[in-house]
Design a protein around this nucleic acid. Sequence first.
DNA 1: CATGACGTTATCGTATACGATTTCCTATGC
DNA 2: GCATAGGAAATCGTATACGATAACGTCATG
Lengths: 232, 232
Amino acid sequence: MAYHTLKQRILEGTYGPGYRIVIDRVAKELGVSAIPIREAIRRLEAEGLVEVERFSGAKVTRIDAKMYEDILSALAVLEGYATAQAYRNLTDEDFDALRQTNEAMRQARSDFDLTLYSRLNQQFHEIILRCCSNRYLVDEIHAFRERMDAMRVSVFNLIPHRASDSIAEHDKLIQLMAVDVGEDAVERFARQHRLATLEAFRRWNEQHTRLVAERKEGYRAPREIHRPGADP
Amino acid sequence: MAYHTLKQRILEGTYGPGYRIVIDRVAKELGVSAIPIREAIRRLEAEGLVEVERFSGAKVTRIDAKMYEDILSALAVLEGYATAQAYRNLTDEDFDALRQTNEAMRQARSDFDLTLYSRLNQQFHEIILRCCSNRYLVDEIHAFRERMDAMRVSVFNLIPHRASDSIAEHDKLIQLMAVDVGEDAVERFARQHRLATLEAFRRWNEQHTRLVAERKEGYRAPREIHRPGADP
DNA sequence: CATGACGTTATCGTATACGATTTCCTATGC
DNA sequence: GCATAGGAAATCGTATACGATAACGTCATG
């Protein structure tokens, strides 16, 4: 299906920011007409992943550092609240899973296995989020995270992970939830945990001075030369 | 344009929850082919306003009381945070505008002019929101509010407005911001202001016992009878 | 070399046509 | 009256065709 293919390519960075998706070319490549491609692009547009300009087609949305920070801080707020709503629903098994996941993260950091580390980090937060009964909130958080992950792959892939701090903070969060210090304190800590990533990003961004979003300009599809008599 | 027409009809309640949008009929009515209608529906799908089932077309999303509450509480969290981020950017003119708007709301309540009251209430919060520099957050809040408003029109239009409390709370919020009691206090108050609406809704919903979302079933487009030889 | 004009080509947006699928209506049986 | 089956009609999903528009390449000029 066209939608899933296009979305995946955007999320994994094959189509970088600013890249112009040529509808006819994708249609030909996937063996369908332009209509389902156009429908897919309308969905992606509504999700904010592409921008559609009339008669010019769809470009992958370009993200600057400001927007990255804006999304990250909005995400911090929602995650903080969701964690506070969720933690009293955590079972003993959940707490065990959290501790094991964080321990595995510690090991992944020692092994310098970034891919595993990231996956475990997601898993850690997912254990908590799955206990939040506000499904709308959870869906929004997932959508925000998806956007963040896509940006990270294509643009901000050199941001330091601050792994040591994260793992220690997970330990602290587990403790706060286990002793039930109250929703306010849990919310504040969980929010700050995410906001610390924002602070790390800001410091990194200032050091690098240039506008990171300008780097790795989206790849423009090559233009096929048509000559009368030439093979298609 | 098809998208705007369809969206407006959903937002103003012409198409209620569960209503099946018949693509060919709308296309004929608007004087276009089915293709732009389908594209519009894909956008609305991604926005959560309709649900698309393969070969059965699009139905306006049905909302139950739980989802209404979920959205409302997520909105409360975001609005609280946005207000805390915005208030130090408010000018003297902004504060004057807030006081005037709240005074006009007081008058509208005395006149029992619900439409004006609601418009002024939106205006009040918009004055604050426009001073929030996190544009992503503001866009999300607008999207949430849009969903809430659509639900209110079509399903929950008898919810009490708790006007007296709201106006008093606006006065208090203005005061808290003016004396700069700190972001935490402002955030907490602004969040609670919205959550009070949630509590009012819950009380009202329990009193009414029945599942409000079942009421006012979406209107199904009438079926046109085709007979050979009949005029189109 | 840079810029602007102009023509060609690629691409976009959507109408029409048509096969696939679901919905709806009618007939029949209990 | 109600349930079920079957066929007709409505509707959906998308390929193809084609006019509208932007992108691109080439050429002329300063």
